[in-house]
Simulated scan of single mutants.
Amino acid sequence: MMNSLSDNTISQYNCSLRLWWEFCQLRDIFPFKYDVPNIISFLQQVMNTSNNTYSSFNSHRAALSLITSSDLGTNTEVKRFMKGIFRTRPPRPRYNFTWNPQDVLKFLNKPPDKDLRSVSCKLVALLVLATGQRIQTVALIRYPNIKFSTSGADIQIPDFVKTSGPKTLQPKLSLPYFHECPNLCVASCLHQYLELTKPLRPADCDKLFLTFNKPHGPATKQTLSRWVKNTMAKAGIDTNMFKPHSSRHASTSCALRQGVHIDAIRRSAGWSQDSQTFARFYNRPLVEKDNYLTSVLNLLSSET
């Protein structure tokens, strides 16, 4: 039963259950008892002492449902209280705007460097922008699961990701050769990276990405996030406003603006065909850097 929860879910629930334990200790309440008034009092106390939004309280409710063996989401009083939280502190998307991937691609569109640091950062950035996948998924790539062909490279991801479930397919990344612009070809960059890291790769490490420094162990998701952030910053993206995960927003939103069908975006990014996640949280307009006059002048100068 513990295996039904991911490590991230357990970590998230631990915060909620710690607060609940402290609440019960102060009031001499048995923490595993299904008692709706106490649960509502607990949620009200958290609301009075924090600025958490609705999604945080939803996590608290789910954590308490786990240890009380009762689905609090179906209780009439809890549902009414949660609706009140929703109206008082509605969930808000992290971003109302997103950045233009063209800025990063222009920065990367140059003759490839040979050093490990440059090739690593370039490959990670190209992978997240070309596929729309999470950095977590990219960090799970194992080089034995990479298959090259005359048309490009295919990568299977057998490890569990955030969207893994009994009725969902595991991610498969298809990277065709981009002959029109070799400097931005993800498959070619991937091949270059494998050749560069071949003599450095430890015998017991099958993860694709390695750290820069000896003994060149597997790079974690946090390490890849730093690489993406550094690339974004060098390309002129405001990393104080946009975090590395925003690359998923930027990539998928750009694909829709370019006319890619919504079903293709969902397949590439790992959403189900009836998912509304992209529409609700990821499809964002570009952040406006220039005013109307500057845009018109740039347009006129490019025509002349």
Rank of each mutant, 00 (worst) to 15 (best):
N109Q: 07
N100H: 09
V186S: 00
R201I: 09
V36R: 08
D28R: 15
L116D: 10
W20S: 09
T211W: 04
S268Y: 03
T197Y: 03
I141S: 00
A203T: 15
L140F: 08
I10D: 07
I39K: 04
I265S: 02
Y13M: 07
N75I: 10
L297G: 10
A279N: 10
F30E: 14
L210K: 02
H216T: 04
F160A: 14
T9D: 05
C15H: 13
S247H: 00
D115Y: 08
K207I: 05
R257N: 11
C181A: 12
R87H: 14
S120Y: 01
L5C: 11
E195F: 09
N8P: 09
R226P: 04
G259Q: 10
T98G: 05
V128F: 01
L129P: 02
K289P: 07
D71C: 13
T49C: 07
S188W: 09
S69F: 12
Y13Q: 06
H245L: 01
T168V: 03
K172E: 11
L17V: 12
Q273A: 13
A130G: 04
S151I: 13
D290Q: 14
L210R: 02
P218I: 01
S268L: 08
H179W: 12
P91A: 08
W271K: 00
Y143K: 00
T68F: 09
F209Y: 01
M241D: 06
C15S: 14
K147S: 11
G165A: 05
W20Y: 15
I265A: 03
V296R: 13
R27V: 04
Q102L: 14
P111L: 07
F23D: 09
Q102K: 14
S301H: 12
D204E: 06
S4D: 13
C189F: 03
F212H: 11
S11W: 08
L194Q: 01
L116K: 09
V119R: 05
S268V: 04
P176M: 08
V161E: 02
M1A: 15
R266C: 06
M232G: 00
N14E: 13
G84C: 11
R142W: 01
F212V: 10
V260A: 08
W21P: 11
E77P: 07
S295V: 12
I237P: 01
L210P: 01
D263S: 14
R134A: 02
L127M: 05
T223E: 09
I40V: 15
P285G: 04
W20D: 06
S56W: 04
A233W: 03
T163N: 01
I237F: 00
K167Q: 13
S174R: 07
S251N: 01
K234Q: 12
S69N: 15
W99M: 03
F32M: 14
T277D: 06
D28H: 15
L224W: 00
K207F: 06
S11D: 11
D274S: 09
A255D: 05
Q258H: 14
R267T: 06
F107G: 05
P166R: 04
C185M: 06
R87V: 10
N14H: 13
G152E: 01
L297I: 15
S246Q: 00
I141D: 02
K33P: 13
I135E: 01
